[in-house]
Simulated scan of single mutants.
Amino acid sequence: MTACDTCVVRNRAICAALDGGEVALLNQIGRRRDLAPGESLMWEGEDSVLVANVVEGVLKLSTGTEDGREQIVGVVYPSDFIGRPFGATSGHGVTALTQAKVCVFSRRDFDKFAREHPALEHKLLQRTLGELDRTRRWMLLLGRKSAGEKLATFLLEMSERLVDPGCDTQPDLPLSRFALPFSRQQVADVLGLTIETVSRQFTRLKADGLIDLPSRREVVILNRAGLMAEAG
């Protein structure tokens, strides 16, 4: 069996648009790679030589400011596609936040394959438009929402991407438990807040009964409707 045959995100990744024979051809130009937390896969401003599917784990997209600070501009999850096909340079760095597995392709090989398989190109276009929509929502999050709204929105997004929908056993009070792949400082960087503000908002959301915090990284959403109202 090939890596594609056993891939846990096979039906959700861009290769879902391909038939068995096409997947076998794609498998020939790809390779699996394991990433440790903090290990980078791509670097901002460098030649775009790789593209990849995320199989397991969570990775951050980041860019540097003029004064040398890092700004996290996005997060990718299993089944997401990363890299810049048909592009010359990488617009941001890509670094693992957790242990991660990715399926890596040479950009030139992938570009050639995509040109020869219109269904894959169409899937790439759909993903690009979806990413554009998320970017527009992110602009609203950073530009218009209050600190409490930002954190609530962020936690809801994390739960939607990290929690298996089948794990909620109480329809009237859905519980979502997940390990946040960010430190408090990284959450602050993502949301454009200070770490003190983030800590205060976590404490307030817990005091209001919307979430529980069993540990520094673990989050349990106790009242999804309430958290959605908090998110605006």
Results as ranks from 00 to 15, higher is better:
225 A>C: 05
215 S>W: 00
85 P>A: 03
135 T>R: 11
78 P>W: 02
43 W>H: 15
12 R>S: 09
159 S>P: 06
47 D>N: 11
173 L>H: 13
69 R>Q: 12
58 V>T: 04
28 Q>A: 14
205 L>S: 07
156 L>Q: 00
128 T>K: 03
185 Q>C: 06
136 R>W: 07
160 E>K: 11
17 A>W: 10
83 G>N: 02
8 V>W: 03
201 Q>A: 07
214 P>W: 00
78 P>E: 11
60 K>T: 04
140 L>K: 14
180 L>S: 07
128 T>P: 03
71 Q>W: 06
196 E>N: 12
172 D>P: 01
113 F>E: 03
232 G>Q: 06
222 L>G: 08
71 Q>K: 15
96 A>T: 02
195 I>Y: 09
131 E>A: 14
6 T>M: 10
201 Q>F: 10
212 D>R: 12
15 C>N: 13
100 A>M: 01
32 R>P: 07
191 L>E: 02
175 L>P: 04
103 C>D: 10
22 E>S: 15
9 V>H: 10
183 S>G: 07
173 L>W: 01
124 L>P: 09
119 A>V: 05
202 F>N: 03
51 V>C: 09
112 K>P: 01
61 L>H: 08
120 L>M: 12
145 K>Q: 12
158 M>A: 14
7 C>T: 02
19 D>K: 10
105 F>C: 04
123 K>A: 15
52 A>E: 00
211 I>H: 04
215 S>I: 02
9 V>F: 07
129 L>V: 13
38 G>R: 05
26 L>A: 12
9 V>I: 14
55 V>E: 14
187 V>I: 11
162 L>F: 04
122 H>F: 12
15 C>E: 13
196 E>W: 08
54 V>C: 03
90 S>E: 15
184 R>F: 08
61 L>T: 03
109 D>E: 15
216 R>F: 01
173 L>A: 14
221 I>G: 01
169 T>H: 07
155 L>D: 00
174 P>R: 00
